[in-house]
Design a protein around this nucleic acid. Structure first.
Lengths: 206, 206, 206, 206
DNA sequence: CATGAATGAGAATTCATTCAT
DNA sequence: AATGAATGAATTCTCATTCAT
């Protein structure tokens, strides 16, 4: 990791720092109000500039959304791919994926919230086709792991496997709707408790 | 029934069947595209009429949303209240609430999806204050039951109780996002499997 | 010609009469100020309505332009095709085409002015591809007639034929920039004088 | 040369070569896309700089247009005045003016194209009042020459003289719309053929 | 000389809503 | 009940222009 921050103007379209700053602001507003209900003016207000000025940095409101989501998914898959490449057993893979997910929620809370709310209809547009791709890859990874777990007798065989998949998936990701970064619990701690519930249930064992 | 219908407003004119039909159509579009992204024209298209014609039946787009949500919540609480009045133990209460919830998802799938997506910010508007009320009442019922269960040693005591509450709540309601009425499983069957996972977890017991 | 004006609402997108009225207004403003310099607001002002109201009738400012130009070209080619099908000699064909052109200028003065000013760059856009097609068909008809005339020794052989083509073509169409319908001269009278100059020149014969 | 250059305005700063270069670039883009449709950014792109940088050289987009047109008209009138001062007969004057015009088209093709497209409405603005003046002076020169020619029985007397004037004027200047400098024909050769058509027509004499 | 970032005044377009018929 | 036509406010986006560096 180089220490030297960009000494001269970095090449490319514009300062990536400012870009990231503005995208963070935009993500915050999108997450709070929903993409459609967010006007460019609101974003600009939150960034302390005029609406038109945003267009120096971005082509359109949609391209901001695009960049927010694709950046998030990029980093998510970096983490997931590392987990999936580690050759863990099914239970350990699920544990690692869940933990990784909570870390991503911690780092990209707004992007996750936006993703939850908007991805379904966005995925229909060609521009956001990667959302559909990601969803499919996602399903393959999680469902495959669960199936492996059932085969290995690590996970229960009496449940509808797709139902289980949806259950585990949703269970993790809806957390983004109430999770506050740097709150009482660290992502790892939340992951631990969630895993405990998902794997062992909330009922006391007889 | 009072004689004084609103003098000019066409709020409750004519056939309640047509009204319900139109609301179902509206709910379908709202659920599919999001409230904000849904134009009155899209609803009218789906209903086979022109945008302006909807205003014979309803005051505004917002009043359609209002009626959809309040009808849904009314029926939901009818069911919940019956359960809560039955004097069941904590585990049985949770089981009954979950089952009732899946039944509501089955009957009001679109309304539930709309509720999930929009209730948070709608609740801030005075008109939709009942959403906030309902949420609070909801939390009281579920959280109270869980607490009673922990006290009765029916539910695990080692979990953060608010985390558990959110977990159970979300776990059930997100199902609306993928649930298709008249699909492979009946609501009761889905409830049964969900409960099995929530209560006992998905891991095989040693 | 039926006397009866539309007794009931005509089918289709909207009353074609109103549509035509608005297009005439738009064409007038486009011709006077140029397409780019014309704001929708100016058109709306000229039509006595608000800018947004135009969108009830048309998809966009561009689609108004499109409809103006395609209607004009449609009628132009109706006239030209009739002339070309008549089996006249080269000189008579040129005379008939010129006369027909002045008639079109008389009927579609604004559309012609717009065409002159905008067709070149519009033709590059796919939507206005028909402009390029028309230009090509146009060249074929005129240039072909001139060539036939040279072969028949009706037109001079000592001139660059493409230069002659451009000369005749431009000579006719620029007239639209100053021509006022219902002015001192009828289109036929103007055509006659133009033809006299084009065919015989302006110099006194020795 | 006065010392008092404009205090803050960068109007006439530095290298006149660079200035001319940039104006040529601007003229090229104006001619290709139209003045209104040309953004400062497009000009800057074509010049290999950023939009803001142009303002070091010019006050405004309009002042670029102004300089392009006034430079062109200045040189045009230099040529015309020489012709008009030469004391030629009407026919020879027309011949000389036409030839001079094609030379100007050759040298200022873009400026001529811009002039054709924009002068009519620009002339209404005070800043471009010289366009109206020029047009008037132009008409006086050409129309006067034609009238003299009719009086001298060099030109036909049976034609509407204003129609003839427009005919000759347009006939020459529209050539700018298709003329490519350094093309097959020299300006003098094109002038020769045009004159031959204008004076003697394109029909074979009996 | 040129850049990067912003401004601010429109521009086109959308859309909930109204209302006479 | 429904239509056709319009309103008017808001929204996204564009662009000439400015200015500190």
């Amino acid at each position: 990791m180089p220490q030297n921050k960009p000494p001269k103007k970095p090449a490319g379209t514009a300062s990536p720092d400012r870009r990231r700053e503005l995208l963070d602001t935009a993500a915050r507003v999108f997450a709070a109000q929903g993409y459609n209900a967010t006007t460019v003016r609101k974003i600009a207000d939150a960034a302390g500039m005029l609406a038109g000025s945003l267009y120096y940095h971005f082509d359109s409101k949609e391209s901001m959304l695009d960049e927010i989501l694709s950046t998030f998914l990029g980093e998510l898959w970096e983490g997931y791919d590392a987990v999936l490449a580690a050759g863990l057993g099914p239970r350990e893979t699920i544990e690692a994926l869940v933990t990784e997910s909570f870390r991503e929620i911690d780092r990209h809370r707004d992007a996750v919230a936006i993703y939850q709310r908007e991805s379904r209809h966005l995925a229909l547009q060609p521009r956001f086709g990667y959302l559909a791709d990601s969803r499919q890859k996602f399903e393959k990874a999680w469902l495959g792991t669960l199936e492996r777990g059932v085969a290995d007798r690590v996970f229960r065989a009496d449940l509808d496997i797709r139902l289980t998949y949806r259950y585990v998936r949703d269970t993790v990701w809806v957390a983004a709707s109430w999770y506050r970064p740097h709150g009482r619990h660290s992502p790892e701690e939340i992951a631990r408790q969630y895993l405990s519930m998902v794997l062992d249930g909330i009922a006391v064992r007889d």
